[in-house]
Structures are given as C-alpha cells and as structure tokens.
C-alpha cells in the first residue's frame, strides 16, 4: 500500500526513468510511442477532472482534441504564424468549448450526457471531413511546422521527446495540485452527492463548468501538440474510438489520480503495440483486459495500491 508520500517517490522514479530512457534505448519506435503517450497523458489529466472525479461521462474528447489539432495546424500552415501564437488561440478555443460543453451537463445526466458528447465529437469530425476547402477534408493537413524553442526547431525525435516530457510534467503538476486541493474535494463531492454541494454554499453548476473547461483546455492543448508532433493530421484519427480510449486511460489507469492517468496513457498507447505479436488477436486481448479491469477494479489499477485511510466501522451501539 502506498501513501501520498510514497507516490511522490514513484513520480520521481518515473521522471528519472523517462529522462534516461532515450540514453539507454535508441529504438526510435519506442521513443515515438512514448511521445504519443505523453500527449495522451495531458488529455487524460484533463478528462480525469470530469469523468474520473466529477463523475460526468465525456465521450467527446476526441472532438476537442481535433479542434485543438486543426486550429494549430491551419493557423500555422495558412497564416504562417508561430505555433506558440497558435497555442494561445488553441487555449482560447478550449476555454470556449469547455464552457459550451459544460452547460448541457447541467441539465443532462448519465446516458443522455454521453450521447450529447458523442454527438459533439462526431459533429466536429464530420465538419472537418467535409469542409474540404478549409480543412483539406480527408486528405488532412500536411507539412505542419514544428515548435521552435530557444532557436532550436523541435524536429528530431529526441528533441520532441524531451519537449513533450517537460510539457507533460508541467501539466501533471497542475493536475496534481488541483486534485489534492479544495477543487479536487469539490469535484469528488459532486460525484458523491450533488444536492449536498449546493447546500454547502457552492454552486454545483459553476463547479461542473470549471471541470469541463479544465478538461477542454487540457485536451485542446494536447491536440495542438499532437499536430506539431506528427506534422500531418487527418480526420480519421479523431474518431469515437479515440474518445473511448481516453476514458479507458482514466478509468483503467486509476480515476482521481495523476498516476492513474500516466499509467492509463502508457497502457493504451503502448500495450496494443506490445501485444502485436498476437497478430490478429491483439485488439481482442487488449479489450478483454479492459473488460476484466472494469469489473474487478472499477476505480482503476492505481487505486488498488493507493492507501486510503480507512478505519474500521465503529461497532453499532446496542
């Protein structure tokens, strides 16, 4: 069992391992996979606020991720502005989408909210797919320029790797601070008992919108990073399948924790690759694992090991 102090050590070990990995292995394939895992982690950190903590299902994350990616890609390829400037626009878009998606969640619950978010994701993808003149349609956007940092173009795998690692650590820190704060408590309180949140003098509507906005900003930024990481994007990436993968990362990894999102993102992006030796069976094995995890450990893998101070129930009087 681990307490919070132990998890800090685990983070330190993980960060050192991630820093050292390219020095030990020069397998560029794994480095590329890890880059993608880092980007997914940022999305998972954000989604954790809504789905992991506040308990609102969001199956439209791929839509937000897509808007982030296309915003940055189109701005940098059509207007030739710096990717950094585009990032500001991406953050702004994330903010607006978060508020816009948060509002339906005030009225809709459960299945209905899931359907709304699925519809949102598909609307975005269909629009991108069909607005051929503007977005390039199914051909996607090519030759997206890389980020520049201190005069270096982040155009090699190794530079990208360290850049994405740094950004991910930054967002992990932000997520960590929010989770273990009054905000983390209020997010969980909404999942546990929403009526009681309002009687505590807290507007549950406002808190839900905050959770959605945080998640959308995280996902949009990750989308922007993705566009410049891969240099080429097309609509077939941003399917419902991707949205489901994000939920899997949060819930199988461990809801309500940063470590869970890290583990989940690594599992979802790398495990299918590891299982490739199974040939045609690798996807089915992967989803059987998801199935088993969901039934046996609904709070996710990390929470099995995390110590929650639980004293035994006091004996009933009489």
């Amino acid at each position: 069992m681990f307490s919070r102090k132990h998890t800090r050590k685990i983070y330190a070990v993980l960060i050192i391992a991630a820093l050292a990995f390219p020095l030990i292995s020069n397998n560029t394939y794994y480095i590329t996979m890890l880059c993608l895992a880092f980007i997914y982690m940022i999305v998972a950190f954000g989604l954790n606020f809504i789905t992991g903590m506040t308990g609102q299902v969001n199956l439209g994350t791929a839509g937000i991720f897509c808007i982030g990616a296309y915003t940055s890609a189109l701005l940098t390829t059509k207007t030739f502005i710096s990717p950094w400037l585009a990032l500001l626009v991406v953050i702004l878009f994330g903010f607006v989408i978060g508020i816009a998606l948060g509002y339906p969640s005030l009225r809709l619950k459960g299945v209905y909210l899931s359907l709304t978010t699925i519809a949102f994701g598909e609307i975005v993808r269909q629009l991108v797919n069909n607005m051929t003149d503007f977005t390039g349609g199914a051909h996607g956007v090519r030759a997206i320029p890389p980020y520049c940092l201190f005069g270096f173009e982040l155009n090699t795998k190794l530079r990208l790797y360290y850049f994405l690692l740094a950004v991910t650590i930054m967002f992990g820190l932000i997520a960590y601070r929010i989770i273990y704060s009054k905000w983390g408590r209020v997010f969980t309180a909404i999942r546990d008992n929403i009526d009681a949140v309002d009687t505590c003098g807290i507007s549950s509507s406002k808190v839900k919108i905050i959770a959605f906005t945080l998640a959308a900003v995280f996902a949009a930024i990750a989308g922007g990073l993705y566009a410049h990481y891969s240099g080429y994007i097309n609509p077939s990436t941003f399917t419902l399948n991707l949205s489901v993968s994000f939920v899997v990362m949060v819930m199988v990894g461990g809801s309500g924790t940063v470590l869970g999102s890290v583990l989940g993102a690594v599992l979802v992006s790398i495990l299918p690759e590891m299982l490739r030796f199974l040939g045609n069976y690798y996807q089915i094995v992967f989803y059987i694992l998801v199935f088993i995890c969901t039934i046996l450990i609904p709070n996710g893998i990390v929470n099995v090991f995390l110590e929650r101070q639980k004293t035994k129930a006091l004996p009933e009087k009489n």
């Binding site: 408590r185 999942r191 546990d192 009681a196 949140v197 009687t199 505590c200 003098g201 807290i202 101070q309």
Partner: peptide
C-alpha cells in the same frame, strides 16, 4: 444551512474532507 432527512454526505471522502467542503465557500 441545512441537514437532510436521508443523510446526504460525500461518502467516498473522510469526515474531515466533508467538513472542508462545508467550509469551501466561506
């Protein structure tokens, strides 16, 4: 402030955390 007939607490959180949510807005 109020309490409920069928107790409405934040069941996955500790007593102390429940209280802290109670003091959040003030």
């Amino acid at each position: 402030a109020r309490t409920f007939q069928n107790i409405k607490l934040f069941s996955t959180m500790t007593v102390e955390e429940n209280l802290k949510v109670g003091g959040h807005s003030r």
